[in-house]
Lab assay of single mutants.
Amino acid sequence: KAKLLVLLYAFVATDADTICIGYHANNSTDTVDTILEKNVAVTHSVNLLEDSHNGKLCKLKGIAPLQLGKCNITGWLLGNPECDSLLPARSWSYIVETPNSENGACYPGDLIDYEELREQLSSVSSLERFEIFPKESSWPNHTFNGVTVSCSHRGKSSFYRNLLWLTKKGDSYPKLTNSYVNNKGKEVLVLWGVHHPSSSDEQQSLYSNGNAYVSVASSNYNRRFTPEIAARPKVRDQHGRMNYYWTLLEPGDTIIFEATGNLIAPWYAFALSRGFESGIITSNASMHECNTKCQTPQGAINSNLPFQNIHPVTIGECPKYVRSTKLRMVTGLRNIPSIQYRGLFGAIAGFIEGGWTGMIDGWYGYHHQNEQGSGYAADQKSTQNAINGITNKVNSVIEKMNTQFTAVGKEFNNLEKRMENLNKKVDDGFLDIWTYNAELLVLLENERTLDFHDLNVKNLYEKVKSQLKNNAKEIGNGCFEFYHKCDNECMESVRNGTYDYPKYSEESKLNR
């Protein structure tokens, strides 16, 4: 008799109507990190870190770059004969040098303040090359056809396309004075040089004057150069050297050249137009028929994500570079809930034993079982409120962090190594801060989002509990077992918050 009662009780308990509160689960393989956990499985997430590029040089917003090819900045601007293909260059979106560009200054020497000139050019998007001192009329008392084997072109001695090597005419090199007034309405880049012979005999042979000088002056520039005559090792078949100089001439300003020898005179100059998204990159990537809004030396990035880990040097509207390998923000729920887990921000989770793959029309909802059958029903209101809140948060985070910009490298010469090392340390410090901030932001927001979901499920549970009161009992896994019969209409009233407690209280009292 006792065995019969136990079996009867078990049958009745199993047959009781139930309603459970749960949440969506799926077959997603997404994982995120939080402050407290690593690799948390979630139903949905968004990636904030771009880690792919196309490996190509592309047009930037429809404008092609200027590819210097086998030449570098120095060779292009001075007019190395091997860089003749660059003479027609007028406009570009950015400038590309190759790491091993070999054609710079063909006659050995240095372009002074080269690093600063590169910085200036990094904001130039177009130029006009014009004859600042016409070759045939500007130097009537001097020979202007100086050439050298060091600047050979097609097997013949030649010289820079933008400079003139002035030497004596006959047996004399009379003092020369020439000036140019900038009437271009924009900055003009003027380049010139000073020749330093290897011996007094060479000085006399070329310029006749043993104590020659070169003077260059404008409103913002004033220097006097004296040739340094000295024996030097042979470089590119030359014992002599040429140093090259430049200045930016403001609109309306005048530049005056005065010399008694050794002047490498300007022939062509450049009127410059600035462009905020221009820059110089060093890259071996090849040019393709493609378009982008962000270019790196590795390749083009076409992404609206706020961060990238491809390269710190970028041109155009680019994500911020960070050292992170993963920045994924959760938008959905835990896919593998932890039992009795309390989140960092106070939300209680884990009283549900598992997510439901059968509930596909919402994030949170119900599963019921009664004599009429069983089924899932999503709670659309709480789901939609959660979707709206999380979507707004993700968009806000992306908008705040998605300050796209150009980031170019800084140039230092060989004598500025300590400054370069200090600059690298400062840049590394800023990069570490950006990386830390980005990672911390994602970790915190992921923790908040998961706790937010847990709290929403808990609130749904409490909503049902407050309606049923003692007409049902909690069975410990997020479910309630009714003390009365609850048909589909009754189940719907529980879900929509209109459950009639008094209607079922007498039946429940008897069954309790």
Score class of each variant (00 low, 15 high):
Leu4Ser: 07
Ile256Leu: 10
Arg118Thr: 13
Thr74Pro: 11
Pro251Asn: 06
Leu263Val: 11
Glu128Asp: 14
Thr74Asp: 00
Val32Pro: 00
Leu248Ile: 15
Phe133Asn: 03
Tyr207Thr: 02
Arg274Lys: 14
Phe257Pro: 00
Gly109Arg: 04
Pro266Glu: 03
Tyr221Lys: 02
Ala212Gln: 00
Leu5Met: 13
Thr34Val: 05
Ser199Pro: 07
Glu102Ser: 12
Tyr245Ile: 09
Arg118Asp: 01
Ser219Arg: 15
Gly261His: 06
Gln238Val: 10
Val190Ala: 08
Ser85Ile: 14
Pro88Thr: 10
His196Gln: 14
Phe270Trp: 15
Thr98Ala: 14
Cys71Val: 12
Cys83Val: 11
Ser152Gly: 14
Lys3Tyr: 10
Leu66Trp: 12
Phe225Gln: 12
Glu131Asp: 13
Asp253Glu: 15
Val235Gly: 00
Tyr160Phe: 15
Tyr207Pro: 04
Asn262Cys: 04
Arg154His: 14
Gln120Ser: 11
Thr31Phe: 01
Ile281Met: 15
Tyr173Glu: 08
Trp192Gly: 00
Ile280Ala: 05
Gly146Tyr: 07
Ser126Trp: 01
Asp51Val: 12
Val40Arg: 03
Val42Ser: 06
Arg274Gly: 04
His53Tyr: 15
Phe276Arg: 14
Thr143Ser: 11
Thr18Trp: 00
Leu164Phe: 15
Thr226Asp: 04
Ile112Leu: 12
Ser125Asn: 10
Cys106Tyr: 10
Ser157His: 11
Leu77Ile: 01
Asn243Val: 04
Leu78Ile: 14
Tyr114Pro: 10
Ser150Asp: 02
Ser205Asn: 12
Val6Gly: 05
Ile256Glu: 10
Asn100Asp: 15
Ile112Ala: 15
Glu250Thr: 12
His142Arg: 05
Leu121Glu: 03
Leu127Ile: 12
Ala10Pro: 08
Gln204Arg: 01
Ser179His: 06
Trp92Ser: 03
Leu189Trp: 07
Lys234Asn: 09
Arg236Val: 00
Lys156Tyr: 12
Asn80Trp: 05
Tyr9Gln: 07
Tyr180Pro: 11
Thr282Asp: 04
Gly104Glu: 09
Gly193Arg: 00
Tyr221Pro: 00
Asn47His: 02
Gly104Leu: 02
Pro99Lys: 11
Arg129Tyr: 05
Ala217Gly: 03
Arg161Gly: 06
Asp253Arg: 00
Glu82Gln: 10
Tyr268Leu: 05
Ser126Asp: 14
Asn182Lys: 11
Leu68Ser: 10
Asp30Trp: 08
Glu250Asn: 09
Glu277Pro: 13
Lys175Gly: 09
Arg129Leu: 05
Val188Ala: 09
Asn72Leu: 00
Cys20Gln: 06
Leu121Cys: 02
Asn209Cys: 00
Tyr160Val: 03
Leu176Phe: 12
Tyr23Ile: 10
Gly279Trp: 07
Arg161Ser: 14
Ile281Leu: 15
Pro99Ala: 14
Ala10Asn: 11
Gln120His: 14
Pro88Val: 08
Asn182Thr: 06
Lys169Val: 08
Ile256Trp: 15
Ser152Arg: 13
Ile19Pro: 02
